[in-house]
Amino acid sequence: MDDQVLSVLSELEKSGIKLNKNHRRDLHELISEISGRDGIDAASVLNDDKEIRELLQNSALNGPKKLERVKDILVGRRYPTYTRARAAFSRKINNLKLDSRIKITPTPFFEDNKITVEFSYESPDGLREVLKSLEKLDKIDLVKEALEDRQDSY
């Protein structure tokens, strides 16, 4: 492992984040790849990020929460287009206000236009409500719209 990245990981540990082997591997990969792509040193990947700096100093957050948030921010920086598309997709689903018994899942990484719909119900009335709610899906091409949401960004 890269010494610079290792020293960044120990800084994270000093702020109360406990890292197991898998966390270390994932964070190492994210930090070294962002650093390589952006031409900045590993320490700057964290230190130059205001959001990360603030959350590491936030005493209201426990270690696991901090870790989760740091990782989310780094994933967002490493995969910006995908992260934006995923957020756009979630936004569009939320806006539809579907029945809470419905679960919508796109193909991993939006590699095709397919949507998987799962739902449950306990009575004929419940089924009718779910089906009524599902009708909202025929007015929107979810994947296409999510991917086009930020077409200008690449």
Partner: peptide, 15 residues
């Protein structure tokens, strides 16, 4: 920005 495709190969995100 390489993600695993349907064939599990790493490839650029579709857009």
């Amino acid at each position: 920005e390489l993600i695993p495709g349907l064939d599990k190969k790493l490839r650029y995100f579709l857009p």
